[in-house]
Design a protein around this nucleic acid. Structure first.
Length: 482
RNA sequence: CGGAGUGUAGCGCAGCCUGGUAGCGCAACUGCUUUGGGAGCAGUGGGUCGCGGGUUCAAAUCCUGCCACUCCGACCA
């Protein structure tokens, strides 16, 4: 019977992109919904990705002089009041802790008891509680700059959630720094944004647009927000990371003052910046295909999977050889998975494909006899299969992984460029999005003053993404967004 | 928080209109044959039908209240 060409993921991206996204996560066994409203369970295959992200970026932060610390998950409600805009931005999505004990009622059911005098909120972000510490830790200009970061989770009570992209609880790092002046704060925002760009391109294999947010898209309480905006395969934008110049706003709210060189009292200038598990969602939507996830090699828990194809009479030989190959690759520092599970070979193959493992090495009787391996690249598919000697493969493996990375990066860059269009009028936007086309449209910033703009933005659910540095701040990107 | 929809085995669904002791596919498990791009045959196990009331001799099915989730909007890393 002839086999039908069949994709591992149903539906395909073209048929139903949001549903495809969900199915990719499921097929790759990365995460699932939990009994807790809006919160996901990150499974080992998903968490391993986050661990690799943390490991890499944490080193970079420390090189820049950032110190890690940990602040409470709960923030006194009153702290939120310290910055008016901040309150407006987050008040509607705070989980509130009001009790500290459970008791059994007359029916034996547990009910909250021990009402707190002062309720706490579960942190939606930590500006206020870190600012409180800074106000005590900073006395003099000699204490500056102060660069802190915490890896942790936060909670924002979202109306509508989507795994990785928007969940009520999510994981991130949040940097909080204090400087003597505005220049220091701006330089910090720019430096971290550059680190983000380096991280997304060199580790996660996708590019985006660095730029400044328009005022209405700023972080609540920020003077200026800078962002890295990436494009998904459905043409929507994803804000992958942001840095915020908070001016002296939080310094005033939290009373963070220092004595300057002349003995005068000054407010510090603070910044904050973050990326989150959301970037994983972006990675999925940028690189994935109709057979599932494609992992950028630097992020992948397993960079190479070895599939031993044994028959009854050659099991010892094939397995022995496969173990030897695995050991040689591990000695090179490559993360290898030798798949010895009791499954049919084709099922193992599809499993490796759906999980997006960058390189698949097949070793059967033929290879074992000849001391060879067959290798297939996930990004190029089975046509890329090549058979070569063990020595040659081990020598070449790191290069192959780099080639997969380069391919993913250039592929996503091409997609981004092919789908970024120039426009000059509100009518251009209407024509483009009205025709159902996907992608970004870049228009002159002067268009933001056009009274006709708002209606069109609303009609097609558009938002301003950023004013790219590359255009000298004279253009603004308008797109649909996640 | 508005509009719509769905809750039945691990997953996907049928059954509901027209009440009568719960079914299909996939997955799992066992055995044999298979194994280089999604195997075949035979067999086995698994469900308080989201939760609570009501109608009835009898409720997955009808009525009612509640809860959860999904999708579309508004809000957002």
């Amino acid at each position: 019977m002839a086999k039908k060409a069949r994709t591992a993921i149903t539906p395909t991206r073209e048929e139903n992109f949001p549903e495809w996204y969900q199915q990719v996560i499921k097929a790759a066994d990365m995460a699932e919904n939990s009994p807790v409203r809006g919160c996901m369970i990150v499974k080992p295959n998903g968490w391993a990705i986050w661990e690799n992200m943390q490991r890499t970026f944490d080193v970079w932060l420390k090189e820049y002089g950032v110190q890690n610390a940990s602040f409470p998950l709960l923030i006194p409600l009153e702290f939120m009041n310290r910055e008016a805009e901040h309150v407006d931005g987050f008040a509607t999505e705070c989980a509130v802790v009001t009790h500290h004990r459970l008791e059994k009622d007359e029916n034996g059911k547990l009910v909250p008891a021990g009402k707190l005098e002062e309720p706490y909120i579960v942190r939606p972000t930590s500006e206020t509680i870190i600012g409180d510490s800074m106000s005590r830790w900073i006395q003099s200009y000699r204490d500056l700059p102060m660069k802190l970061n915490q890896w942790g989770n936060v909670m924002r009570w979202e109306m509508r959630t989507r795994m990785f992209l928007r969940t009520s609880e999510f994981f991130w790092h949040e940097g909080h720094c204090a400087f003597e002046d505005h220049d220091g704060a701006t330089a910090d925002c720019m430096h971290i944004l550059d680190l983000y760009e380096k991280f997304f391109t060199e580790v996660m294999a996708f590019d985006g647009f660095k730029g400044v947010k328009t005022p209405d898209e700023r972080f609540p309480g920020a003077n200026e927000t800078y962002a890295f905006e990436a494009m998904m395969q459905d043409g929507k934008a994803l804000q992958a990371a942001t840095t915020h110049d908070l001016g002296t706003t939080f310094a005033k709210g939290c009373n963070i003052k220092y004595q300057d060189r002349d003995g005068g009292e000054q407010f510090v200038h603070t910044t904050s910046w973050a990326f989150s598990t959301r970037a994983i969602g972006g990675m999925i939507m940028i690189h994935g295909d109709d057979d599932g996830l494609i992992m950028p090699p630097k992020l992948a828990a397993h960079q190479i999977v070895i599939l031993p194809m044994v028959k009854d009479d050659n099991e010892a030989q094939v397995m022995g050889f496969a173990e030897k190959v695995a050991a040689a690759l591990k000695a090179k520092g490559i993360r290898v998975l030798l798949d010895t599970r009791e499954m049919r070979t084709p099922d193992k193959m599809w499993d490796a494909i759906k999980k997006g493992i960058p390189l698949r090495v097949e070793i059967g009787g033929r290879e074992a006899d000849a001391e060879q391996v067959s290798c297939v690249r996930r990004d190029l598919g089975r046509e890329s299969k090549e058979t070569l000697s063990v020595e040659a493969f081990v020598e070449k493996a790191e290069g192959l992984l780099q080639a997969v990375h380069d391919e993913l990066l250039s592929r996503s860059r091409k997609f981004r460029d092919d789908n970024t269009h120039e426009g000059s009028s509100v009518q251009d936007l209407k024509d483009f999005f009205g025709a159902g086309k996907i992608g970004f449209m870049k228009v002159p910033v002067t268009l933001l003053d056009d009274p006709a703009l708002e209606a069109v933005m609303k009609e097609y659910s558009l938002s301003t993404r950023c004013m790219p540095f590359a255009d000298g701040g004279e253009k603004v990107i308008i797109a649909k967004a996640y």
